[in-house]
Design a protein around this nucleic acid. Structure first.
Lengths: 112, 112
DNA sequence: CTAATGATTCGATAATCGTAGAAATATCGA
DNA sequence: TCGATATTTCTACGATTATCGAATCATTAG
């Protein structure tokens, strides 16, 4: 993972509503959540949420997938994993858990 | 660690020069680096770097300490550790490494 | 005390971000 | 096809961010 994408990912998460949205998507797991559901959960106007989801998508942290008229968003665990790996390696003095910093489920669970 | 401070920390790191500065400080370790040294390393005007260091300080990621006329900055490993912990717990589906996500040295090595 | 050094704060400016209503786009049901 | 539903894109605007020279503050040496 490169510094450029890391910065975009950090920036994407560095905002109240986006962090909340991402957390909700992580919690939702594989099946994800529709834009509407998310907008209601976060109490945001659709257009505002849409803006934030676009930022997260642009940062590669979430994925979009159409299902009927709904757009279902879901967290990209591998991307989050990459971010954690970068931070561990570059911002944590190459500490102990560097090798374990697979904070995903994803690699394992997505495949399963 | 609370969402509010997490957002400030993420925002602080989500910028080219600040991420570079923080990485340099992490690498520098305990002894830290002076503002001047850092400014030269990053090729930034003093006033610009000062602005960024203030942001990092405000986010609690770095510490300041005067030494003669120089201000020495150093990374706060515990804060970074806290950030990693939050992300692991809240943004990684409570994955495997949650308990290990002590990405610091700090707690152990600072004391030593 | 004065000059020199290291660094921050001030000030102005350009650029980006967040917000949310309104208009447009896509899909589905009848 | 037409209307309803789900969402995005457009638009405008206020707020925040990044930049950096100039002015200021703090510390030390002479």
């Amino acid at each position: 993972m490169q510094a450029d994408i890391v910065i975009r990912a950090l920036g994407a998460l560095a905002q109240e509503h986006r962090l909340a949205a991402f957390r909700a998507l992580v919690q939702a797991g594989e099946s994800g959540l529709s834009a509407g559901t998310l907008a209601e959960a976060l109490q945001l106007p659709n257009s505002s949420l849409s803006f934030h989801l676009a930022q997260l998508t642009n940062a590669g942290l979430i994925r979009q997938q159409r299902q009927g008229r709904s757009l279902i968003y879901s967290a990209d665990y591998a991307a989050m994993n990459g971010l954690m790996g970068y931070l561990t390696k570059n911002c944590c003095a190459g500490a102990v858990c560097a090798a374990d910093a697979n904070c995903s489920i994803s690699e394992e669970r997505n495949v399963a």
